[in-house]
Write a protein that binds this DNA or RNA. Structure first.
Ligand SMILES: [Zn+2]
Ligand SMILES: [Zn+2]
Ligand SMILES: [Zn+2]
Length: 91
DNA sequence: CAGCAGGGGGCGT
DNA sequence: CGCCCCCTGCTGT
């Protein structure tokens, strides 16, 4: 029905699962704690990403320059601004 | 411009 | 329900 609206903040979520997860965020279910800093992640995936920062893992490497990003999105952003894609050729 | 954290969509188990 | 991928916003250098 696409009517998954949060009664706490009024956000609309696409699926019931997403809404339930959203409610968990409101509840502050940060059960994933980092072993190197007082950071506590809301989701396991976020903790893994955070751990990459400590471990120095940089799986996303730019093939146009010696830049390495921890988060995949960061690499994309880097390419978008630094190497403004020859495919769309900017002015 | 680069880095980090929050939050959402979608698919598989 | 759990896991993975993607986009967005804020802050610091
Ligand atoms: Zn809400
Ligand atoms: Zn940490
Ligand atoms: Zn690059």
């Amino acid at each position: 029905m696409l009517g998954n609206v949060c009664g706490l903040c009024g956000r609309s979520l696409s699926s019931t699962s997403s809404l339930e997860r959203h409610l968990r965020y409101h509840r502050g279910e940060r059960r994933y704690a980092c072993a190197h800093c007082p950071y506590r992640a809301v989701a396991r995936d976020k903790l893994v990403r955070h751990l990459h920062i400590h471990t120095g893992h940089r799986p996303h490497r730019c093939h146009l320059c010696p830049f390495a990003a921890i988060q995949a999105t960061d690499l994309r952003k880097h390419i978008r601004s630094k190497h403004p894609t020859e495919t769309i050729t900017p002015p």
